[in-house]
Structure formats: structure tokens, C-alpha cells
Amino acid sequence: MKTLAIMVHEAWLSTLAAGFMSQTQSKQRLFDFSDILFRHFCWIEGIMIEEGESYNYDRDSIPIKVERLSVILQNIIQRLNQIDLQLIGLNHTLGSRISSDLHYMREVLAHLPDEKVEAFGMQRKLPSVLLSEEATDALTIFLFEESYKEYELILIYNYLQAHSDDATLNKTFQILIEESFFHLKQFGDMMAQMGILGIPRLVPHEVYQVADLETFLLAGIDEEKAAKEECRKLSQAVASNSPQLAKFFDFINNQEDYHIELMKRALDYYKAKQHG
């Protein structure tokens, strides 16, 4: 089961990366498929927990650097084939559901139009946006740091949710997962446009296997505040050259307010539950 989880994790990220690379109508299709693979990953995780199987989110590095979209699409199809083979050993109703999804996805992926991939050219320019050198460097660092951070948050909240049966906390975790997915897709798209696309690196166990939820939430609130500040500085840096990009970072900045509020509420709720 662990091998299956790793394979699905890698296929999820690979498909998400293909979505970032695509500049056509295929993008949304690839994002939808990556979302489905993420759900498969969560369901497999649920079975492992039910069956008391120890697991973590380790995976191999995922090579994604291609010149044509068809190359990564073929790679994803191969990954899905291997997952399908692995499902043969899964004695669970989930197996037929996942297999059916994989069958459909393979069919669709095989017929998506090919595209030239511009996501690795390192031109570090956004279409119709002229930034200073300093602003370009700051944006580059921001995108690498924050795309990893969003992936990390998805895994942390997913792990917390998988190991909690508290409906109130899980509702908060689910909202934060969805918010991080949105941010990750926004940042990943921007990285692909700038020619600096990369897969977020592996997250160490101790980061998502949270030992103390109270400490984690307190630190998380501080990190959200720091992210707000980064967004504010970036917005200021790009405002004169691109008011539109500045508005985007203001938009992300303002979204962090709600994350902070959610985490504060989760913290109060958890503390009351622990001590009351």
C-alpha cells in the first residue's frame, strides 16, 4: 500500500506540473486530473490508517524538464499504467474506482494536443510586465519559497486531517488545504510563465508529523503574517511597472488574513478542548 501511495503522490505532482506547462485548454484538464490523483492519494492514506500501516510522505524526485508537453504526458500515462498494475494487489472497493479513473485519464491524456514547453527557459519575464532586476530577483525567490510552502501546507493539513476525527478542526484544515492549492496553482503558473518551473522538494517527516498542534498553529500564524509582509513588499516593488501584478499580490496578501483568523479560531478551539 505504501508503494501505491508513493506512486500516486508522484503522479499527482507530475500531472500538476504538466498543468503548469500547458498554455492551452489542456491546462484545466490536467489540473482536474491532478486534483483527482490527490484525492486518490488521500483515500489510500485513509486505508493505510484504517489498517494500521505506518507510512510517510516520502517520494522520489520527479524529473519534469521537457521541451514538448507530449513527453511528460507519455510519462504520466506510464505512471498511471504502473499504478493500475499496483492496484491488482489492493483488496478494497477503492481499487476499482481508482482503476476506472486511471483508465479514463489515460485515454484523455493520450489525445491531448502536443505543445512546445516554455516553462524551463529561465527568461524570468512575465508577459506584458517589465520589472527591475531587483524586483525580478525578489519575485523569483518569492515564487520558489512560497510554492514549496504551499505544498508543505497541503501535506501538513492533509496529514493532520487524516489523523483527526474532530469535525471542527477538520473543516478548518480542509479550507486551508483548498486555499493552499489555489495559491500553489497561481504561483506554479507564474513560475512556468517565467521559465523557472520546479517541483516542490520533499517535505521532511517532522514538518507534517506535528507533535504539538498548539505550537504548530502559533508558528503558523506567525508564518502567515510573514507571508503577508512578503506580499506587501512585492506589491510595492512591482506597482509602478505593473499595477495588475501589484493587485494580485494584494489579493494574496488579503487572503492570508482569513487564514490567520481560521488558525486563531482553531487554536482557541483546540486549547479549550484540551483544557476544558
Binding site: 516520502d58 522520489d60 524526485s61 524529473p63 524538464k65 524551463f120 529561465m122 527568461q123 524570468r124 519575464k125 532586476e133 525580478t136 530577483d137 523569483t140 520558489f144 523557472i196 518551473l197 520546479g198 517541483i199 522538494r201 520533499l202
Partner: peptide
């Protein structure tokens, strides 16, 4: 490649860090 302080080699390490993970 933009003519900035951040060179291509550095960006490649960011895009695909070498030797990342646990043996």
C-alpha cells in the same frame, strides 16, 4: 535569461536541487 545578479546556475539549483532527500 534576464541580465540580473541571479545567474542561471543558481536558478537551476532552485528549480531542481541536486542530491535532495535521504539515502
Amino acid at each position: 535569461m534576464a541580465d540580473t545578479d541571479m545567474n542561471a546556475q543558481l536558478i537551476e539549483h532552485m528549480m531542481e536541487p541536486k542530491n535532495y532527500g535521504i539515502l
